[in-house]
Design a protein around this nucleic acid. Structure first.
Length: 641
RNA sequence: GCGCGCGUAGCUCAAUUGGAUAGAGCAUCGGUCUUCGGAACCGACGGUUGGGGGUUCGAAUCCCUCCGCGCGCGCCA
């Protein structure tokens, strides 16, 4: 089971990175660069100048200026290069600047501070980049160079268990990453590694059979209750402890009698497991019904969340059940696994803790299934990148599994390309008291509770505003308002989660999550709706707007345009770092810059027709980028709200 | 005991991956306001980046150390 309530392993490193093209052999300068980003041209020009001076290929370190007063970009390489050469950084910056041809790109370049080169872009060059971006069907993102697939392990739901707030993260972070890689032109596999096999499921099944439950009418609550009941009635914790602490024979005998029913229930569960494993059609049918009932909630949550997870993504533990023996054999034959106290373990050179892949009773473990899944994902799904969006506490587990996979060479695709195996461990879900929310304590928010609440609050807010006769939403049907309200409420929840560092712990605060003001999902939706409104009111055709020449005269126009051209690089960066919060930061900045532009530059009331059309075009490009960016979070951008 | 992670404004979080004066939102206070959509905009207040030391032109970021909090540690998943 992939449960977010699992009890294993801590965080991944704060900076989660992997080499996106590990064995492709491509030279560094072949790294994808969007041509609509001015930084690409600047990089090429300064790189050439540096090569002419030093004779070496060095990163010119082109960065967006942290402060607008320094211009649009800065080149930072002079300082580190001067250090290597033992020369004066400012003098080297002067030399580089003299040797750089910035004609047609920059209107001003100057050396500042300890050796920065501040660059102000030429307005016409910037306008041309926006023009290029607006004509691109991929928003300027170059075609993917890696033909292999990206595999994303997400959702992590367990059969017979209610989804709770923790599953929100595994689901929407995974889906968002999948959308990013789809935007980058990669083939993406969303893998829902269901906990649908093994003793816990058999225990639940055995209990339901014994109690003659009506499987046709089973609800998820029934399953949940049976799961818990089965766990409880088979527990022999006190007895196990008595053995462990070598209690006297009298005490143990006493407990043996007390726990006789538990032994019986467990025996019964094990017999059910054997029937299930041997393919007994009666048991298999009931087992399938268990999965069906469980998954209904997942599909419903996915619909509500606008997440692309359905039956086609189900590939759970049961899928790998016939491959587990092969996993152990492969490790045994290659000499990587050895017998230890009757169990099979894979030892590691750099640490004490081995990876247990087979129990002394012959049974397989979580790790065995994961190893089978790694092999499937790299060899059969052709994944050169396999991302596991799973609770950060399972870090040690994945470190072991990935290292074992590398030892045996399963981290390669069928054609021999190296696969990056990455655990994206998200932080714990904490309560207002900063303590982890306990699962199965009965009182905690289920995922459904959260989503219902978000949709209700969103609908209430939209309905309240629609009561104003001047509101664009005035007069819409209750159904329509509820549809928009749900989009707003869900946007609030998703944005609150995805716009932070997902590897950090997460304070579950419903009021904050469904806030509609400030740096929120609805703020972005609002900006989108407002732009859509302007475009609709303009009376101009989309074709006329798209063909308008761009004139970037006002600083607010330039600032907005510059940010638009950076969209492609931002998406590439998310693909490289798996940091979904970059999308949110970019979009919030975009909305803020648009609002600044909106404040400073009249659009419909512009002084002349050319400026009006140019500004309408900026609006249109901004709207398109905003909508595409929101789609990377799976957030719907309504025309009115 | 061993291992891992975290610590930034009152609160929730950023910081272009080592760059210039650490930025947003919320909250508080003040302003814009007969509006191209106020779910907005502008401003003020708020910081010894847990403490200390080190590396260098330059550190929230890298190294060491201490403090505090959390997580994990082979026959569950």
């Amino acid at each position: 089971m992939r449960g977010v309530d699992g009890s294993r392993s801590p965080h991944g490193s704060r900076r989660l990175r992997y080499d996106p093209r590990p064995m492709s052999g491509a030279p560094a300068d072949a790294v994808l660069r969007p041509s609509c980003d001015p930084a690409t041209a600047l990089d090429a020009r300064f790189r050439a100048a540096i090569r002419s001076i030093t004779g070496a290929d060095a990163d010119p370190q082109i960065r967006v200026s942290g402060n607008a007063k320094f211009g649009d970009f800065q080149m930072n390489a002079a300082m580190s290069l001067a250090k290597e050469r033992g020369t004066n950084p400012r003098a080297l910056a002067d030399e580089i600047l003299k040797a750089t041809d910035v004609s047609g790109i920059a209107s001003k370049c100057e050396v500042a501070g300890p050796g920065f080169i501040n660059i102000t872009l030429d307005a016409a060059f910037l306008a041309a980049r926006v023009d290029e971006l607006s004509k691109s069907t991929t928003f300027g993102i170059p075609p993917a160079s890696d033909p292999h697939a990206v595999v994303i392990d997400l959702c992590g739901v367990n059969v017979a268990k209610q989804m709770h707030v923790g599953h929100l993260r595994a689901t929407i972070i995974g889906d968002s990453l999948a959308r990013v890689f789809e935007r980058l032109g990669r083939t993406v596999w969303r893998e829902n590694h269901l906990g649908d096999w093994g003793l816990p499921i058999a225990m639940t099944l055995a209990k339901l059979i014994r109690e003659k439950a009506d499987f046709a009418k089973l609800t998820l609550d029934d399953l949940n209750a049976a799961y818990r009941g089965a766990q409880k009635e088979t527990s022999t914790a006190d007895l196990d402890a008595a053995y462990e602490f070598r209690c006297g024979p009298h005490r143990i005998a006493e407990l043996e009698i007390q726990y006789e029913p538990a032994r019986g229930a467990m025996d019964n569960a094990k017999k059910t497991l054997v029937r299930l494993q041997s393919g007994d059609p009666d048991v298999v049918r009931l087992w399938e019904r268990l999965i069906e009932v469980t998954m209904e909630q997942v599909y419903e949550a996915a619909r509500t969340l606008n997440v692309k997870v359905g039956p086609e993504n189900n590939r759970g533990e049961s899928f790998f059940r016939d491959r587990l023996g092969g996993v152990v054999d492969a490790f045994a034959k290659s000499g990587l696994a050895k017998s230890d106290k009757g169990a099979m373990v894979v030892p590691f050179a750099d640490r004490e803790r081995p990876l247990l892949i087979q129990k002394s009773d012959g049974g397989f473990l979580y790790a065995t299934t994961d190893l089978a899944a790694v092999r499937f994902r790299t060899f059969e799904l052709d994944g050169s990148l396999v991302v596991y969006v799973v609770d950060a506490r399972q870090r040690d587990h994945f470190k072991d599994v990935f290292d074992a996979a590398r030892l045996i060479g399963w981290n390669t695709t069928a054609d021999g390309a190296e696969s990056a195996l990455v655990h994206l461990g998200f932080g714990a879900v904490l309560g207002a008291d900063k303590k982890p929310l306990k699962t199965r304590s009965g009182e905690n928010f289920t995922l459904k509770d959260l989503l219902d609440e978000a949709c209700e609050r969103g609908t209430a807010e939209v309905t309240r505003r629609a009561a104003d006769p001047n509101a664009p939403t005035h007069g819409l049907s209750p159904d329509e308002l509820a549809r928009i309200g749900a989009a707003v409420g869900i946007a609030a929840v998703k944005y609150a989660d995805l716009s932070g560092d997902v590897t950090k712990d997460y304070v579950f605060d419903l009021d904050r999550m469904v806030a509609f003001e400030g740096d929120t999902g609805p703020y972005l939706q609002y900006a989108h709706a407002r732009i859509a409104s302007i475009l609709a009111k303009s009376g101009e055709s989309a074709a006329a707007i798209a063909a308008a020449p761009l004139v970037l005269a006002d600083p607010a126009e330039k600032a907005l345009a510059l940010h638009l051209t950076r969209y492609a690089q931002m998406v590439l960066d998310v693909g490289r770092t798996l940091e979904t919060n970059r999308v949110g930061a970019y979009l919030a900045q975009l909305a803020t810059l648009f609002n600044g532009f909106y404040q400073a530059c009249p659009v419909l009331k512009a002084d002349d027709a050319a400026a009006r059309l140019s500004r309408l075009r900026l609006c249109a490009v901004t709207r398109a980028v905003l909508a595409d960016g929101l789609s990377l979070y799976g957030i719907i951008a309504p025309e009115r709200m």
